[in-house]
């Protein structure tokens, strides 16, 4: 099973199966609800590797995520379109699209032993636009 992550906007990010290691999708509803609440949100957690190509041949897309994570809230670039494809055996199992996602958490960790870095990105759809989140799936690529 592989994951493809596409983030549009200033400094687009395209991550392939080689670097994304896990994706989690959350539909967040208050746990103390007694009935179906309107207070729900959607979020994605993406983890993966930062593969640095030797001689800087291929462009490293993860740097654009790091830059996105420090964009101030007054900038239009703070909200971007995040699309995640979960692909297995030529079938798109899931295609999550968060069209107005903002960064909740971003982390990069690097050390002097492994030669690659690791990243963790947590994004959330702007809460009043939760209904624009789309969850597709079950079609061939």
């Amino acid at each position: 099973m592989g994951f493809r992550v596409t983030i549009d906007g200033a400094g687009p990010v395209k991550l392939s199966e080689q670097c994304v290691t896990s994706v989690e999708f959350f539909s967040e509803i208050p746990k103390d609800s007694n009935a179906r609440a309107t207070d729900n949100g959607t979020a994605l957690k993406i983890r993966g590797k930062m593969l640095f190509s030797l001689g800087a041949e291929a462009e490293d897309a993860t740097i654009n995520m790091a830059k996105w994570s420090v964009v101030p809230s007054e900038s239009a670039d703070a909200y971007r379109n995040v699309k995640v494809d979960v692909v297995a055996a030529n079938q798109v199992v899931r295609e999550y699209t968060l069209p107005n996602a903002f960064v909740m958490e971003y982390e990069e960790s690097l050390d002097d032993e492994t030669g690659v870095g690791e990243f963790y990105l947590h994004v959330k759809q702007k809460k009043d636009l939760t209904k624009l989140t789309s969850i597709e799936g079950g079609f061939s690529e």
């Binding site: 971003y106 982390e107 002097d112």
Partner: peptide, 24 residues
């Protein structure tokens, strides 16, 4: 000397939209 680096950006996890309350 340096073995490990972590760079982190966080906003409060209960935010409903991008806030000014960002720390790096």
């Amino acid at each position: 000397c340096v073995q490990k680096i972590k760079f982190r950006t966080d906003i409060p996890l209960d935010s409903n939209a991008r806030t000014k309350d960002v720390g790096s």
